[in-house]
Design a protein around this nucleic acid. Sequence first.
DNA 1: GGAGACCTACTCGGATATCGTGTGTCCGAGTATCATAGG
DNA 2: CCTATGATACTCGGACACACGATATCCGAGTAGGTCTCC
Lengths: 164, 164
Amino acid sequence: MRMNEGVEWALHSCLNLAWIGPGRAVTAARLAAYHELPAAYLNKQLQALVRAGVLTSASGPKGGFRLARDLDRITLMDVVTALEGPEEAFRCTEIRQQGPGAAPGAGPAGGRAPECAIAGAMGRADLAWRRELAAQTLDSVRERAERQAPDAPDRIRRWFANVA
Amino acid sequence: MRMNEGVEWALHSCLNLAWIGPGRAVTAARLAAYHELPAAYLNKQLQALVRAGVLTSASGPKGGFRLARDLDRITLMDVVTALEGPEEAFRCTEIRQQGPGAAPGAGPAGGRAPECAIAGAMGRADLAWRRELAAQTLDSVRERAERQAPDAPDRIRRWFANVA
DNA sequence: GGAGACCTACTCGGATATCGTGTGTCCGAGTATCATAGG
DNA sequence: CCTATGATACTCGGACACACGATATCCGAGTAGGTCTCC
């Protein structure tokens, strides 16, 4: 059970976009170059964020990506869901209703069987995870990052300004 | 990000083992047949549980698997960790320290850089997930399952008795 | 009749193929900019 | 000089390969029980 690597890339890119400022769009190539990532693949991840409404994109010269809203209105949950999909990690395949020993009354087609106790338990854990993800905004992450490296915003702003 | 399907199989098998009773060992083939699962592959998952100390195994005739301890001393966390490994889903690859814009002082080799704020935030979510997994014992799951299907224990016990 | 050794059948355990999803790459559609020509 | 038009370069967006891990399978090592033989 391994999370898509693009989640890390996307989160860093969102923070970088915020530090650069909403003034202008930044291309996927620039964002990728900053961390030496494959540009086309990062582009793919950013597309997913656009579909999810976290970023906006523009084609052509002076085009690129920019944040669709402020960091304090973007949660970790938004980014993870955009890239990993809405489904939870544990997928109940209802094997309890398969095989010779399955309960006769509650067939898969018959329906209205109460939720599998195992799926319910795993679902509670998943819910706790999502709750924590939704409780943390990218702005809170940015705040912690700046506390650890106060010079980061300036350094990043300057680097992107020079390259552009 | 999808969890190993074997987790579901293992959890159901543990519950079945508990309902059958600690009297005798059950082979992977029997456990698999009950849900029409590939026997050899289920065997592989059960092996992992043995390595983790959740089950014990015995070879030869009258061999098979049995619970290493009572259900109330086995948590969902035990099973998940046994099959998925101890690492968390989000792996920080430290891309913040890669590329031309990386902080000069805190190289990967230099070390003692404070934890990445993003990894920390994702880690908190992972911790909430694991905490919930560790808080739920298989016995509590069994209890809920029996409340939903009170006839399940008897039906299972009888099926395994007949086949054996 | 009893005990010991051998044989057999059965199970786990790990090494070996196959498949699917994530990872990475490429080319086309669309657009803002710039140069150019005409009024 | 100002405006309209076409060419151009640049960007995103989705279609196309590749790789690695999960899935599935198979065969060998080890063991308990049964059987046969010998005392």
